[in-house]
Design a protein around this nucleic acid. Structure first.
Ligand code: SF4
Ligand code: SF4
Lengths: 147, 147
DNA sequence: TTCTTCGGCCTTGGTGAATTGCATATGGAC
DNA sequence: GTCCATATGCAATTCACCAAGGCCGAAGAA
């Protein structure tokens, strides 16, 4: 990365849609206000996500966006990579020829491993998982009932 | 990250020292030439490493740098953090107050996990390990003896 | 003393992140 | 069929930081 605002906002926006159900069309203005995201910025991010087939856009009055697939079929990695392209700690990882030293570079081996560990976390969680986590975090009603 | 040039160069430089043995004083000029690193840039990086107690500097004729500790006592993470400060995917990880949403944000939980997985790799490998890997990679003499 | 090497500070150019603005296209509501 | 809300596309701006280079001073061995 670094984890950019675009990724941050993009995830928030997609989670907002996932939380509302797959087929509820929601305009940018609502998401922008609810999650406190600059509307024009979010528009650009959602365009990337539409083109990647993660969102579906609907123009015209009462238009907006919906998820293109069920939340359980979209991983966090799908969203992040749709926003900022494939993530790599160094360019020598996807393209060993970019560094003359790569063939005998031990650091590169380490970086490949590190990158794998990082991405594993994002691959193994779908939007459904995250929404579920979010709900259980924000609503713990039986924690300490009033005496 | 992103993995910056400073980290890249810093690791290369430190590995060069580790490869030569703990107590061999080596000037910037040699490292700079051997590993193809801009000398002034490397100088700045090594200053940070000196201040962090990873390197020791020696001024004057036949001066240079040495490791301050045995290579087995220095982890890759030590070096990387000395160069660019503590690594965090987002600022809400070390400082939850920086985001109003942090208390009920599931993404943050995911990011904490992802960051841990990434750093584990850097903590578990010392310079000694990496130098050892490097040697075994660049010198496989018994792989295919001449017929 | 002298020469070598590091130390600190300041400057520069370049790149990309994070916005904002405006003009255009689309399609549902009426 | 007209209107208006909405997305789409492109341009431009601002700002931060990375990468590098230059200059002079300090330290220290010979
Ligand atoms: S030196 Fe190693 S880690 Fe650095 S760019 Fe080259 S191959 Fe990659
Ligand atoms: S929304 Fe969640 S992940 Fe993003 S900064 Fe706030 S706490 Fe961190």
């Amino acid at each position: 990365m670094q984890f950019t605002k675009a990724e941050e906002y993009g995830m928030q926006g997609v989670l907002h849609l996932a939380d509302k159900g797959k087929d509820e069309v929601t305009p940018l203005s609502e998401i922008s206000e609810a999650r406190d995201i600059p509307e024009k910025f979010l528009a650009k991010i959602f365009q990337s996500l539409s083109r990647s087939g993660i969102l579906r856009s609907h123009r015209g009055v009462r238009g907006g966006f919906t998820l293109a697939k069920p939340p359980g079929d979209i991983t966090v990695k799908d969203v992040l990579e749709a926003i900022q392209g494939p993530y790599h700690l160094t360019k020598c990882i996807p393209d060993p020829d970019s560094c003359a030293r790569s063939a005998s570079c031990a650091m590169r081996e380490l970086l490949v491993t590190a990158e794998e560990r990082l991405l594993e976390v994002f691959v193994k969680h779908t939007l459904e998982d995250v929404v579920h986590m979010e709900r259980s975090m924000s609503a713990p009603p039986s924690e300490k009932p009033n005496p």
